[in-house]
Simulated assay, not measured.
Amino acid sequence: MSHPDHLRKGTNTSVVHSLIAGSLSGLVARIMTAPLDTIKIRLQITPSSGLTQTTKDIILKEGIKSLWKGNVPGSMMYVIYGGTQFGSYSMYNEWLAPLDLSGQLHSLVVGMMSGLTSSFISYPFDTLRTRFVANRGSEFFPLKQACVDIWEHEGFKGFYGGCTTSLVSLTVATGIMFSTYESIKIYSEGKHGDATPILSASASTISAITSKTLTFPIDTVRRRIQLQDSIHMNKFFQMGNNLELYKRYQAVNNILMIPVLMIRYEGIHSLYKGLFVALCKSIPTTVLSLWTYERIMSV
């Protein structure tokens, strides 16, 4: 028995129900994929590191529990982001239905708007998560103290470092994810309603791979920016060369120059470090998120 598509254009979906289902779907996805998230972020922010060495360093030097560093702000971010993403999607979906856009274009526009909204609201928790993961010490940062450090030394803007880059990345990624997902769903049903089960079942996986691959370099630059003004740089980077590179990036006022410098000093592959892990994480995250959302909405 097929389940109704609650993301389809014109679907009359309760915003409150979408908020609840989206929040729970985000929490489920976070719990299942947290260790991959930690490894991915550590690869993105460390110039000279590989997947195997990074994983060994985290486990052997910091302990197995370090794979869940930043889990509290990360879980809070996923709950807030998931709830806002699906809740605002339902709201924008209803608002823009009268414009009579094609199904694919409608999903793209609504997805980008929901990505913009959810990214901005949840961003402070993303900054905290990145800094928690960057900490190479065996002791975890207390959440309250981390917030106080940012507020006292960087001010309110410290919580939103790299936010512009994030809004671009997540807005585009969310737009691509939803539009790809709905395009595949619409196509798989065919002109005469003939379903294509395999393609339809792969919609969430394909949408995850597409959106993550196209926007990953923007996400990597964002991670670097989130660390730049922290007073804990010595805990993030114990190797002199890496710390020196970040000091060079700190001196740049134009964020568009950061990827240029990364390519110059680290090579173009630096923009895609952690992509494999990101895809390994993104696929189950998106699949779990969309699957959980649809099942909860059906209930």
Rank of each mutant, 00 (worst) to 15 (best):
M177Y: 12
I150E: 06
K273P: 01
M262D: 09
G26K: 01
L108W: 14
D5Q: 10
F132H: 15
G26D: 09
V172A: 15
L128E: 04
K235Y: 08
L227Y: 05
T52R: 12
D229I: 03
P35H: 00
S138F: 02
K144C: 01
L36K: 00
G70M: 06
L19Y: 11
F236H: 08
I258R: 12
T13K: 05
P98Q: 08
W151Q: 09
I231D: 00
K61I: 01
I41V: 15
E182I: 09
D149N: 07
I31T: 09
T38W: 09
S90E: 08
K185V: 08
T285R: 08
S102G: 15
I176N: 07
L256Q: 05
I268N: 07
I268M: 13
A208E: 03
N12I: 02
L256G: 08
Q250A: 15
R295L: 14
G267Y: 09
H269Q: 11
S179T: 10
F125D: 05
M262Q: 11
E266Y: 11
A34T: 07
S122N: 04
A203G: 07
G115C: 14
G50D: 14
S188N: 12
G70Y: 04
S2I: 07
L279R: 04
F156W: 07
S49M: 05
S66F: 01
K40Q: 13
M177W: 03
T292V: 09
Y78S: 13
Q228H: 03
A134W: 03
G175C: 10
R224E: 01
E139P: 00
N241E: 13
K281I: 06
K9C: 02
Q228D: 03
G162H: 03
Y181P: 06
G50H: 06
G190T: 12
Y78H: 13
G267F: 09
S230C: 01
K212V: 13
L101K: 05
L108H: 10
T174A: 14
M76R: 01
K144S: 03
G175F: 07
E189H: 14
L67G: 00
L143R: 02
L96R: 06
Y265W: 11
T33M: 06
D149Y: 00
C280R: 01
A201H: 12
A251S: 14
S122M: 03
V109H: 06
I268K: 12
N234A: 13
C147E: 05
L105N: 15
G240E: 15
M32T: 07
I225Y: 02
H192N: 15
T213H: 07
D5P: 01
S114M: 08
K9L: 01
S14Q: 12
R222N: 11
E244D: 13
Y92P: 01
I41H: 09
V287Q: 14
G115K: 08
H6T: 04
I231F: 00
T54F: 06
A278S: 15
F156V: 14
F141E: 04
Y265G: 00
L101T: 10
P98N: 05
L108T: 14
H232P: 00
L214Y: 05
I41M: 04
V260Q: 14
K273Q: 14
V72M: 03
L99R: 02
V252D: 03
N254Q: 10
I209Y: 04
